[in-house]
Design a protein around this nucleic acid. Structure first.
Length: 543
RNA sequence: UGGGGUGUCGCCAAGCGGUAAGGCACUGGAUUUUGAUUCCAGCAUCCGUAGGUUCGAAUCCUGCCACCCCAGCCA
């Protein structure tokens, strides 16, 4: 099997040497928040690697800290993974293994490799040493096995208050790796666990529980992010010293960073709690559910994850790269329709009475997408921005005495402009060129601009939920028109052109296509937003 | 100043001793009834840096520099 990244190289080598027989991975979120785009990378890696090697991938909830975890999150996480289209082999919870993890801790004590420590948190911290100085051994380090056993049992039975005692692995207080300086592996914590309720008052630490859970699930390759590299020696220590039969291997890779995007669960949670966004599924959020309500196709996200690759170098991907995959997918699959945000009434004086109907492809790039009907009459609406009383340089759209093409229809000429009392444009009187009809234009007139329009007779009013940018408007001010268009063309697919449509999740009304309100659309119901909204670097929620 | 990692084009990223893939972005130009798409063309004499080994190095060796992570009873 050809390796696409360094992890696959490792697997290939192991397979070749017979170190492992198959591949079993797991996606291991802690249910303390919603999944975001960063998790998508891990999701694709874990599920993708398992699939490539015809192996298995579990969903594993790392719920060893009940004070932060909730059932709401586990349900949301499952829904997000399903949305992405991944199918897990089994679902496991660290809490399902609490009994066995406890037994493994007892074994460590019996083997003289763990001890109950009475030091307070700050004392342990003070004795841990520093980056350059070794730590000092706890005075409780040499308690007898019998005493440790008794004390640990009492910890489990609730005889001690939170923080009063902990169980520590007996490793090496002078290790240059701070994680090996007699790490705490169990703490007393009286918190209601979302699954085990009040059964336990002691909980294992991540460093102890994770390798054991990997082993018990049969995981062969435990993929995690770079910050756990220093924990690998401890991971291996646990695997080697607890007597587990199956020995998994931890491999680290760089987490995903995207420009101008907040990827920290802590801040995302704060945004939700502060009411800065309507919830975890606010389209401005980089959460999977937020992306979904924004109209981002799951396929696009997966294509993106595949393209960015897996490596160990810290990196920050430009948001345009992600946007490219959204556009790429939408261009091929999204249904088209025309829409107008700020309507400007247009009367085509020489157009015959009644409606003229015609059929068009729903998606010119996909014949199987079907056809749609578009009608036209002498009264239509166009976008206010598509007419300029005083056109800036290189303005391709409508102006007084100028021509423009109505998409899918005719070329029109603006003959007259009717103004309001305040000087703003009220209505346009135009004439159309009959022989310029879409498909068989014999007029010989060349126009550069093509604009959207809706038929006044049967256009549909839509209520669009408006989301503001978190980016300030000031970001745009000072830009000239061409730059503005350029910006829009990146963030609103095709700029002023036809928006792409795709269905959105039920319950989501209509999403923003661009800044401003949607007023009229021809085909009422499904709309979509195409702008990419992101948080600025350094953005901090209000305290 | 301890330990663990990483350094190839603006951003990702291949490359694993034989003389720098690809994508995004960008720039030209052609088509185009979406200022989109599509399509051609251009875009690292150089791989953090200084030396060394070699007929030959981004790839091997040595020194140096830069950046990231670690002192939670979080994960």
């Amino acid at each position: 099997m050809e390796a696409n990244n360094f992890i696959e190289e490792i697997i290939n080598t192991e397979l070749g040497e017979g170190v492992c027989e198959g591949v079993h991975t797991r996606f291991p979120p802690e249910p303390n928040g919603y999944l975001h785009i960063g998790h998508a990378k891990s999701l694709c890696l874990n599920f993708g690697t398992a699939k490539k090697y015809d192996g298995l991938c579990n969903l594993f909830f790392d719920d060893t800290n009940p004070s932060k975890e909730k059932t709401e999150y586990v349900e949301a996480i499952k829904a997000d993974i399903e949305w992405l289209g991944f199918k897990w082999h089994e679902v496991h919870y660290a809490s399902d293994f609490f009994d066995e993890i406890y037994e493994r801790a007892v074994k460590l004590i019996k083997d003289g490799k763990a001890f109950v420590c009475d030091l307070k948190a700050d004392e342990i911290s003070a004795m841990r040493g520093t980056l350059t100085e070794p730590g000092k051994e706890s005075p409780y380090r040499n308690r007898s096995i019998e005493e440790n056993l008794k004390l640990f049992t009492e910890m489990k039975d609730g005889k001690y208050a939170d923080g009063e005692k902990v169980l520590r692995a007996k490793i090496d207080m002078s290790s240059p790796n701070i994680n090996m300086r007699d790490p705490v592996i169990y703490r007393v914590l009286r918190a209601h666990h979302h699954r085990t309720g009040d059964k336990w008052c002691i909980y294992p630490m991540y460093d102890f529980a994770h390798p054991l859970c990997d082993s018990m699930q049969g995981v062969t390759h435990s993929l995690c992010t770079l910050e756990f590299e220093d924990h690998r020696p401890l991971y291996n220590w646990v695997v080697e010293n607890t007597g587990v039969a199956h020995k998994p291997r931890q491999i680290e890779f760089a987490r995903l960073n995207i420009t101008n995007t907040v990827m920290s669960k802590r801040y995302l949670k704060k945004l939700v709690e502060d009411g800065a966004v309507r919830g975890w599924d606010d389209p401005r959020m980089p959460t999977l559910t937020g992306l979904r309500s924004r109209g981002v196709p799951a396929e696009a996200l997966k294509n993106f994850c595949e393209a960015i690759g897996i490596a160990k170098a810290n990196s920050e991907i430009e948001i345009t790269y992600f946007e490219h995959f959204i556009r790429d997918y939408l261009n091929a699959h999204a249904e088209r329709a025309m829409a107008v945000f700020e309507p400007l009434k247009v009367t085509i004086s020489n157009f015959p009475d009644g409606n003229e109907m015609e059929e068009f492809d729903v998606n010119p790039n996909d014949e199987t997408a079907g056809k749609r009907q578009i009608s036209m009459s002498k009264h239509i609406y166009i976008e206010q921005e598509d007419f300029a009383l005083v056109p800036p340089p290189k303005y391709f759209r409508l102006k007084k005495d100028g021509y423009v093409r109505l998409k899918n229809a005719y070329i029109i000429r603006c003959d007259d402009v009717i103004l309001n009392e305040d000087g703003s444009v009220k209505e346009l009187i135009c004439s159309y060129v009959p022989e310029s009809r879409s498909g068989n234009d014999t007029s010989g007139i060349k126009v550069k601009g093509v604009i959207h329009w809706v038929n006044a007779d049967d256009a549909v009013d839509c209520e669009i939920r408006k989301y503001d940018y978190l980016l300030k408007d000031a970001e745009y001010s000072g830009q000239d028109f061409s730059e503005r268009m350029n910006y829009d063309s990146v963030h609103v697919y095709n700029g002023k052109a036809e928006p792409y449509l795709s269905s959105v999740q039920e319950g989501t009304s209509f999403q923003l296509l661009r800044k401003g309100y949607y007023k009229k659309v021809t085909e009422g119901d499904k709309l979509v937003l195409s702008e990419i909204v992101s948080l600025k670097d350094g953005y901090k929620p209000n305290k």
